[in-house]
């Protein structure tokens, strides 16, 4: 499933960052398999995959810290495969942030300008403007990073990567250590900053919700191979692969039954929210009814697992009422619901 996948809506413009057939080996183990990928300028792209899928490796290769075993890295159309990191002009936010503990917040942020020979006064002016952009309170600017909260440190790391005006911003799971609420807030902040600055952004994450919510383009990696790339809604609704369908959210993957519109070797993906509770179908709809196996309260809704027509189904029920295990669940599969997954389905 490796191959060349352009991954942005603006297909006509040449991509700002491009990987051509990039492979990477750790000893005898190949971590990345011939990845080809283009990132359009100004887009927010998320690189999503489970642990060990090669996301961080890909990011490190893009940033110039690791060299690919095969293939090319192009930045702005020029071959940067053998360029050192400092020559690529990419801002990288590390997973553990890697803030300089011996420097104050503002000197952390001005670092990228100082090493480029910008006079300290001007570098600090730019640093302060960037700290304002990331909404870090001014009373923290002269503190060392270890005297900031986790969320504030994230903002410093983003500001530091932005301050010198990078060609692109690369973020390696920067919100991993934060609680869910803070992650969502910072994710929204990151998106706001990206829109305001227009900087091309690549976010590495293993959080599907984060990737779906923030990105213009989603790229999914699994076991070092590029599975699919495209707008998040397209990947969520029309995945090419049953594993991806399940990875991006709860999925009913139907391989048998009277409502199956798929050919042999294919399966029908029905998201739980596509099923409608009730038992009065319109023309062409199918009714499903069977005993409830499990009910999971998810805050905004209940996820009800039930059996119908020899198949296990999941339906998302909003509102406070939900059936109990053992009761009969009645649902409608609308005629136009579902997506034929064409590869990798098992009967």
């Amino acid at each position: 499933m490796n191959g060349s996948v352009p991954c942005s809506a603006a297909e006509d413009a040449p991509p700002l960052l491009r990987l051509e057939g990039v492979s990477f080996s750790h000893g005898p183990r190949e971590v990345l398999h011939a990845i080809s990928l283009g990132l359009q300028g100004g887009a927010f792209t998320s690189l999503l995959g489970p642990s060990g899928s090669g996301k961080t490796t890909l990011l490190q290769i893009l940033a110039g810290h690791w060299k690919p075993s095969r293939g090319k890295v192009l930045v702005d159309g020029a071959d940067a495969t053998h360029q050192p990191p400092e020559a690529r002009g990419l801002g990288l936010v590390h997973q553990h942030l890697a803030l300089f503990p011996h420097l104050t917040v503002e000197r952390n942020v001005s670092f990228g300008l100082e090493v480029r020979g910008v006079p300290l006064v001007r570098a600090l002016e730019k640093a302060r403007a960037t700290l304002e952009l990331v909404a870090l309170p001014a009373d923290t600017w002269r503190r060392p990073p270890d005297r900031l909260s986790g969320g504030q440190r994230q903002r410093v790391a983003i500001a530091r990567a932005l301050a010198f005006g990078p060609r692109a911003l690369l973020l390696d799971e920067p919100f991993t250590a934060l609680d869910r609420g803070l992650r969502q807030r910072l994710g929204a902040e990151l998106r706001r900053i990206q829109r305001e600055t227009g900087v091309t952004t690549l976010l590495v994450t293993h959080d599907q919700q984060e990737a779906l919510a923030l990105s213009d383009t989603l790229v999914v990696l699994r076991e070092g191979r590029l599975l699919q790339a495209g707008p998040p809604a397209e990947l969520y609704q029309r995945p090419l692969d049953p594993w991806l369908a399940g990875f991006l959210g709860e999925a009913n993957l139907v391989t048998t039954g009277r409502y199956l519109r798929a050919d042999k070797g294919e399966c029908l993906l029905v998201r739980p929210e596509e099923l409608v509770p009730g038992d009065q179908p319109d023309c062409g709809d199918h009714t499903l009814h069977g005993p409830v196996r499990e009910v999971v309260f998810r805050g905004a809704d209940h996820l009800v697992t039930f059996e119908a027509d020899g198949q296990v189904w999941k339906i998302a029920l909003t509102g406070s009422a939900a059936p109990r295990p053992g009761e009969i669940m009645r649902a409608i599969l609308p005629a136009n619901a579902g997506w034929n997954v064409t590869r990798g389905c098992r009967p």
């Binding site: 110039g64 810290h65 990191p85 400092e86 002009g89 590390h94 803030l99 670092f111 090493v115 480029r116």
Partner: peptide
Amino acid sequence: TVLQAARGLGAR
């Protein structure tokens, strides 16, 4: 990783 970060920020 701070050294790597410094390189990424443009330091030789």
